[in-house]
Amino acid sequence: MHPQHRTAGQPAQDLPVVALTLGDPAGIGPELIARLLARPEAAQLANVVLIGDPWLWEAGQRIAGVRVALDPVDSFAAARGRPATGRAAWLAMDTVRPGDVSLGQAGAAGGASVLRALDACMDAALAGHADAICFAPLNKHAMKLGGLRHDDELHHFAQYLGVTGYFCEFNTLGDLWTSRVSSHIPLKDAAAALSVAGIKDAARLIHRALQASGVPEPRVAVAAFNPHGGDGGTCGREEVDIIAPAVRELNQEGLPVQGPFPADTIFLKAQAGEFQAIVTMYHDQGQIAIKLLGFSRGVTVQGGLPIPITTPAHGTAYDIAGQGRASDAATWQAFNVACRMGRSHRAARAAQA
């Protein structure tokens, strides 16, 4: 996707508004966002609104060794109609004091800071002032210490945004996307979590998400659950009783989904270009493959929400925080996905209006 170039003085109203956060203040997020916004093309892809603490933004630039000029705004609404200047907008917000953050350590103050920034972004989305959200890495333990009442950020997003339907995380690596039927549950419970309805929901959702990201006719494969795809029922019956029936019903709906394919070969097919998406049955079935194929470039997309939300798939990397060594490759990819999906989201909203 090539950037849409704009010159200073032209209105930026045709660009998607992408809300950007600094992530966990004790992690590598601030320096990653500094590197991201130091790229001139970032402001050509979207009307970017960076939200966060001024001291933390200064620290991120210092660690990254860059200086980035921003345009101060006092609200997301004000950022929506601003002229394109080649710079991101800056919405200052006090969420945490420097003395309450210990670099490289998960803490309640940092977790609460992350929640406040994300909630402000979601408020902007609910009000129609933001078209996508891209957040720098966060830490679930810190967020729980800081007040998170859910297992993960996705469930927090879903409740905050009033989602009642199916939602799940997508993990992406370039042109390859994965969804999963079960996520953050013990492996011993994964078989019981499988259902025809769950597989169909996961397949439909990733098909729609890929279309929103610019792929008009996604090719979707479904992974088996058991070794060797169950060997015709001799090594487990989930494929016979649940997965294959789900695939048949999806085909009857007109969705060109294929499978189930044994999990130990399905990613070879995708790597060869046969499929752009894989529906996996449980968390590590897809995560191990995606991270092995490209850990430093992976992106997590929060699927099934009323607004696109993306983040780099790696974590806060507390062990190297503040050292200026963190790569922004995955952050750049997450930002690009947010821009593409934000553009589609904005167009769909305009069409409905």
Rank of each mutant, 00 (worst) to 15 (best):
G27M: 01
G27Q: 01
I28P: 01
I28A: 03
I28Y: 01
G29R: 05
G29D: 00
P30I: 02
P30C: 01
P30D: 00
L32M: 09
L32Q: 07
L32D: 03
L32K: 02
I33G: 02
I33L: 11
I33N: 03
A34Y: 00
A34H: 00
A34P: 00
R35V: 03
L36N: 05
L36W: 01
L37H: 04
L37S: 08
L37K: 06
A38N: 08
A38M: 02
R39V: 07
P40G: 06
P40N: 08
E41R: 13
E41T: 13
E41A: 12
A42M: 03
A42S: 14
A42G: 01
A43F: 10
A43R: 10
A43N: 11
Q44K: 05
Q44D: 07
L45G: 03
A46P: 03
A46W: 05
N47E: 02
N47R: 14
N47W: 01
V48D: 02
V48C: 11
V48R: 04
V49D: 01
V49Y: 02
V49K: 04
V49N: 05
L50W: 00
L50D: 02
I51G: 02
I51E: 01
G52A: 12
G52D: 09
D53I: 03
P54F: 05
W55Y: 06
W55L: 06
L56C: 13
L56E: 10
L56V: 09
L56K: 06
L56I: 12
W57T: 13
E58Q: 15
G60S: 11
G60W: 06
G60P: 08
G60M: 09
Q61P: 08
R62E: 12
R62S: 14
R62A: 15
I63T: 15
I63G: 05
I63N: 10
I63D: 13
A64R: 04
A64Y: 03
A64Q: 04
V66E: 12
V66P: 08
V66K: 14
R67D: 14
V68T: 04
V68D: 09
A69M: 02
A69F: 00
A69I: 00
A69H: 05
A69N: 05
A69D: 13
L70V: 10
L70M: 14
L70Q: 08
D71W: 10
P72T: 13
V73H: 08
D74L: 14
D74Q: 15
D74H: 15
D74E: 15
D74S: 15
S75G: 12
S75W: 08
S75F: 07
F76E: 09
F76M: 11
F76Y: 14
F76R: 12
F76D: 07
A77R: 15
A77T: 10
A78Q: 15
A79Q: 03
A79W: 01
R80W: 09
R80V: 14
G81I: 06
G81V: 11
G81T: 14
R82N: 10
P83E: 04
P83T: 08
A84G: 11
A84C: 12
A84I: 10
T85K: 11
